[in-house]
């Protein structure tokens, strides 16, 4: 395997890891505040559809992004209402959101565009185009570093760079700001936050809203950057892989990046059976690579690679004790 093939696999890793990373960070905010969210998948899907539909109609990918975030936020609001205000079961609410999104996107797409539950192909400004970083072309011929800069670092869409920037930003918010301290506290012991005179409900809604925004970006990326339009079930389980990555990362931002890159790498390899065969000398079933993230997560959960301790108040609605 030469350098260029390797770089192509890594480049594809970056593109595939981006939606995982955005969804994973989305889940991180929500779950760190004590609201479990298995509705990442549904929120991504809704955002993918609405962003593609609006991008096609208006011809602007950026308006599509706004619409995608709006769709995801609406579902977040439902999840918040169900699990924070009405103290419902967070898992059930999340499952409901996934079903709702899976069904609704196809039905609305069909009645809107009449193309069998998909949006028309996006082209031009309706898609996020790759950005060529400065000097990428000029430096292309520099040995080793040139191709790395041109193939791997340059040439991604704005959303990829945004996702990467969100990692240090999330870390900073979590550990260096008042909001981060309170948010982490509310996921561990909401009574401590309440008796300290801070609103538990306000904090949790804020976290769920951030989760909605990030899922919206993730879904928009799927439909307007990674691919060119919405198709049925296009999130393809990425919301669940993002949750697996979140557990793998033990709810920490930098580790979330590593986990998502690892899982993205596995997805990239699954797309290039020739590369694996070249490297290992025998064929590896692509489906095996698809299940690896889940297998790794099960291994983590079984405690083989250190303990993954979720936020202690996660999943439980806050009720003042009587």
């Amino acid at each position: 395997m030469d350098l260029l093939t390797f770089l192509q696999v890594l480049d594809s890793t970056m593109r595939l890891a981006t939606p995982l990373l955005l969804a994973c960070l989305a889940g991180l905010y929500s779950e760190r505040a004590g609201i479990f969210d298995i509705g990442l998948e549904g929120k991504m899907l809704a955002a993918a559809f609405l962003s593609a539909a609006v991008a096609f109609t208006t011809g602007s990918a950026w308006l599509g992004l706004l619409a995608g975030i709006g769709a995801s936020l609406a579902l977040s609001a439902i999840h918040g209402l169900a699990s924070i205000t009405f103290r419902g079961n967070q898992l059930i609410s999340g499952v409901a959101i996934n079903f709702l999104a899976a069904g609704l996107t196809v039905v609305v797409a069909q009645s809107w565009f009449g193309q069998g539950g998909r949006t028309p192909q996006l082209a031009g400004a309706a898609r996020f185009e790759p950005i060529t970083l400065p000097f990428a072309d000029a430096l292309r011929d520099v040995p080793v570093l040139g191709p790395i800069y041109y193939e791997l670092i340059s040439g991604h869409t704005a959303l990829v760079y945004l996702a990467l920037l969100l990692v240090p930003l999330t870390w900073w918010v979590l550990y260096a700001t008042r909001f981060g301290l309170r948010m982490r506290a509310v996921g561990e012991n909401p009574a401590a936050v309440d008796t300290a005179g801070v609103s538990v409900i306000g904090l949790r809604y804020a976290a769920v809203a951030i989760c909605g925004v990030l899922c919206g970006i993730a879904g928009t990326y799927l439909a307007t950057a990674l691919q060119a339009g919405f198709v049925k079930d296009m999130s393809a389980g990425r919301g669940y892989i993002a949750l697996a990555a979140l557990i793998f990362a033990k709810w920490r931002p930098w580790y979330a990046l590593y986990a998502c890159l690892l899982f993205g790498f596995l997805q990239a390899l699954a797309l290039r059976p020739d590369v694996i065969e070249g490297a290992l000398g025998f064929k590896v079933n692509g489906q095996l690579l698809d299940v690896l993230p889940y297998i790794l997560t099960v291994i983590i959960l079984a405690g083989f690679v250190g303990k993954a301790i979720p936020p202690r108040a996660g999943g439980a609605p806050y009720v003042k004790e009587r």
């Binding site: 309170r182 506290a185 561990e188 009574a191 300290a196 202690r312």
Partner: peptide, 16 residues
Amino acid sequence: KLVENFTVLENVVLGA
């Protein structure tokens, strides 16, 4: 009403 995996200092500061 303390956050178990926070430090003493973080618990004191929380909310204030």
